[in-house]
């Protein structure tokens, strides 16, 4: 039974990582670089819940309403970043990475000025604060909710990418930007849409995180390094890679934590991922192309 509990702990950590990393995978594939301000888009999603609760007083309703609203809020924020700044930098990926880091600094400070430095408190609905008992297993409702949100988000994104014409365009741009442009795909518009969706998913993750932790200016930094590793180890723009790596890293982290404590577990996971990248330099799933670089 203890093993099952530990597995569930790993799965629930994996689900959080997946949700945090999902939007990142999309933007990584599209601009070839990690968006270091992704954590602050998550933060924007969490503050959306806080603001919404001032209007919608029912905790349950406000949380459900917050999911789409946060998607739009963070999506628009990401869109603004893309249109004002990042689109000028697509040919310089490493500079994009640094610029997004500068943005994250500024956004954190902006949150501190807008909402104040202290953490904000949101009410969680009663049906999400308890636990579901299955035999001797205690499954926290909030964790199950996050797992469900993650599953829906991955499912929705997969369908959108494979079954819609927009999805096909996104995949075309990710795989070969020049060829896509030559085929008449308006790459600039596809870029904007991709960035909007990727950022929006960060907002959804932010809503979910309000159930687990603090809502404050630096909340975006707590899961973000793990999420970067999920994306890098999963492979550029590959959703299945992120899914597998999120659960592998989550599981590894949880199981190690039971054995050696949180600090050492974290170090071991980081080292393991670094070694993994040695083995698969382009991540778990790579796009097979004939290009050399």
């Amino acid at each position: 039974m203890a093993v099952l509990t530990q597995l569930f702990t790993g799965i629930s950590f994996g689900a959080v990582l997946l949700l945090v990393a999902l939007g990142l995978v999309l933007t990584f594939g599209q601009m070839n670089v990690i968006n270091m301000a992704h954590g602050e888009l998550i933060m924007a999603g969490a503050y959306t819940v806080y603001m919404l609760q001032k209007v919608v007083t029912s905790a349950g309703a406000s949380l459900l309403v917050a999911l789409p609203v946060a998607f739009v809020v963070s999506g628009l924020l990401g869109l603004a970043m893309e249109m004002l700044l990042l689109r000028r930098l697509y040919h310089r990926p490493l500079d994009t990475l640094l610029v997004t880091w500068g943005l994250s600094l500024v956004l954190q400070q902006a949150a501190r000025d807008l909402f104040g430095a202290p953490n904000k408190q949101t009410a969680a609905p009663e049906w999400l604060t308890g636990a579901v008992e299955v035999g001797a297993l205690t499954l926290p409702a909030s964790r199950l909710f996050i797992l469900a949100v993650a599953v829906v988000a991955v499912g929705g994104l997969s369908v959108a990418l494979t079954a819609t014409s927009l999805g096909r365009r996104i995949r075309a741009v990710v795989q070969n930007r020049n060829l896509a442009a030559t085929s008449g795909i308006p790459t600039a518009r596809v870029d904007r849409t991709t960035f909007f969706i990727g950022s929006g998913l960060a907002g959804v993750a932010g809503v979910a995180l309000t159930l687990l932790g603090a809502i404050g200016p630096s909340m975006g930094t707590s899961y973000i390094v793990d999420a970067f590793l999920v994306v890098v180890a999963g492979g550029v723009g590959r959703i299945q890679g992120a899914v597998v790596m999120a659960f592998v890293i989550g599981m590894l982290n949880a199981l190690l934590e039971y054995q050696v404590g949180a600090s050492v577990a974290k170090v071991l996971v980081f080292v393991a991922v670094v070694l993994f990248i040695q083995w698969r330099p382009q991540g778990l799933f790579t796009l097979r192309t004939r290009s050399l670089a």
Binding site: T9, S12, P140, L212, S218, M219, T221, S222
Partner: peptide, 8 residues
Amino acid sequence: GNTEFSAI
């Protein structure tokens, strides 16, 4: 700053 407490 760590916020993942499920194991603990």
